[in-house]
């Protein structure tokens, strides 16, 4: 969403306190999102934060923007409906790994391939926090959780590789331990015209004692500083698989891939005429021409 960004002074907080534990990675995401929206100066009445269910899906409440706190796994269809109905809106999805990579993973693939112009932030803590600590689709093999007391035996899903293969046109990763970098990733994602996904390592301080801030810090490095060519999908895929290759010793964050493709609203025959909400109801001529088909 690059059009019509004008600086407005506004308070972005609603005064509602999030439910997160002290030290939760989601606070870092909140701070980064506030900074991104403030820097971009998008009118808060044109912003819709759409979440699913899970700790991270509480994200819209502390904001004074519009928001929909929807069902578990269904934030992308709800967000898609909002954006398809009103293309003038800045629509940002905020959910977790269980929400987006587990129960809702089908929607991720299809929303990415549609290239709907919106931003999706996935707070990935490799655990189900709100349900008090069961394995998630990104939990590591061997992870001992309430649902895998003998160790997780399923391969973790690779969200970056999945997003790339599904056709996402902006694929990035951030870490809650570096909110300033994350704010850049989010800001660029919002400004990107197309479907942008930002996978965020957002540590759960209560139920995941493996993937902690201290575990991440020595392992993460920034692609921007490593000479990565983010316009090359093969190189992006290579970087996406680096965590598998190095057994998580080296974890790239930053922009993996960015490309420009026509967005859904430029291709859709109805939306070519402008935002749906601004289109008039059918007049008598249109109605009668349809009726004629049935003669």
């Amino acid at each position: 969403m690059v059009t019509e960004i004008k600086q407005v002074k506004q308070v972005l907080t609603s005064g509602i306190k999030p439910i997160w534990c002290a030290g939760c990675g989601d606070f870092g995401v909140q701070a980064a999102l506030v900074k991104a929206l403030t820097d971009l100066g998008i009118d808060r009445s044109n912003v819709v934060l759409v979440s699913g269910i899970g700790c991270s899906s509480a994200m819209p409440h502390p904001f004074s923007t519009y928001g929909v706190h929807s069902l578990h796994g269904r934030l992308l269809p709800v967000a898609s409906g909002l954006k398809l109905a009103n293309d003038d809106l800045t629509v940002i999805g905020t959910g977790g790994d269980g929400d987006g990579y587990g129960i809702g993973v089908g929607h991720l693939i299809h929303t990415a391939r549609r290239n709907i112009d919106m931003t999706y932030i996935v707070m990935n803590n490799e655990i189900y926090g709100l349900t008090t600590g069961q394995a998630s689709p990104t939990s590591f093999i061997g992870a001992k959780t309430k649902s895998t007391p003998f160790g997780d035996i399923e391969n973790p899903l690779n969200p970056i590789a999945l997003a790339l293969s599904a056709g996402a046109t902006y694929v990035a990763r951030a870490f809650s331990g570096d909110p300033m970098h994350m704010a850049e990733m989010i800001k660029n994602g919002i400004q990107h015209k197309g479907f942008a996904i930002i996978d965020v390592f957002s540590p759960c301080v209560t139920f995941n004692n493996v993937n902690t801030y201290d575990w991440y810090r020595p392992r993460v490095y920034k692609l921007e500083q490593a000479g990565h060519d983010s316009s090359d999908i093969s190189k992006a895929m290579e970087k996406a698989l680096e965590t598998d290759k190095t057994k998580w010793e080296k974890i790239p964050i930053g922009l993996f891939y960015k490309t420009q493709k026509p967005v859904y609203s430029e291709m859709d025959i109805t939306l070519k005429n402008g935002p749906l909400i601004k289109q008039p109801d059918p007049d008598k001529t249109k109605i009668n021409s349809i009726l004629e088909e049935y003669l």
Binding site: S70, L71, V78, A79, G81, L82, L84, A85, L89
Partner: peptide, 13 residues
């Protein structure tokens, strides 16, 4: 599932 949730999104807009 996507159909009904998209329609809910559109109606919310």
């Amino acid at each position: 599932i996507a159909a009904i949730n998209m329609a809910i999104g559109a109606a919310s807009a």
